[in-house]
Amino acid sequence: MHPLIIRITHWVNAAAMIVMIGSGWRIFNDSPLFDFIFPPVITFGGDPDVSWHKYQNGAYGALQWHFAAMWVLVINGLVYLTYGIVSGRFGRLFLPITVDGVRSAVHDALRFKLDHNTGVYNHVQRLLYIGVLCLGVLVVMSGLAIWKPVQFQGLAKLFITFQGARWVHFLCMVGIVLFMIVHVALALLVPKTIVGMVKGDDHDTDHKHKTGERS
């Protein structure tokens, strides 16, 4: 069901997100937005407690990972978005979203009447997928505003202040992490979705999706 380009970009994105989020947590810890830091053991690339260096500040390892993985994330994301839009895949799978459709999907879900047809997303799923794509765009935009508040000052203005951009960047991360938790949990509940995203040999075909046929 999933074309090769979608399967590749999906897993590359998964890896890049893990590096970006884990290293981002370590960078956050150096100057927390509020009275909380991420446990160092779950951060990525610069942990002073379990790490090598004798210097107090260990964020540079995390920064190196963050600013390396950002290229992977952005280039891979652009390939994915371009393909999704140009091929019509996004429109086919994620649209339309209607209030009634969302209501009935929530209604079914609350009664554990889960439709396990891979390749056909209910309206709540569509909403979540489009939502996380928007968060993906916003997390990159706020990231660019944090990286280059002078060179990209027009973009930075959208976030009012420098800390405003940090807050948006942080809240996007929270939204993406919540999405990932639901996404992975549901995938584990219906393992054939994972097989489909790896091998792409699910019995459904695009033809069947188009005609609304269920396997």
């Binding site: 053991v41 990525f44 690339g45 942990d47 379990v50 790490s51 090598w52 260096h53």
Partner: peptide
């Protein structure tokens, strides 16, 4: 030189 141990710990994690 400095990053040998860092990478060792990354590997662990």
């Amino acid at each position: 030189v400095e990053n040998r141990a860092l990478l060792r710990s990354i590997e662990r994690r």
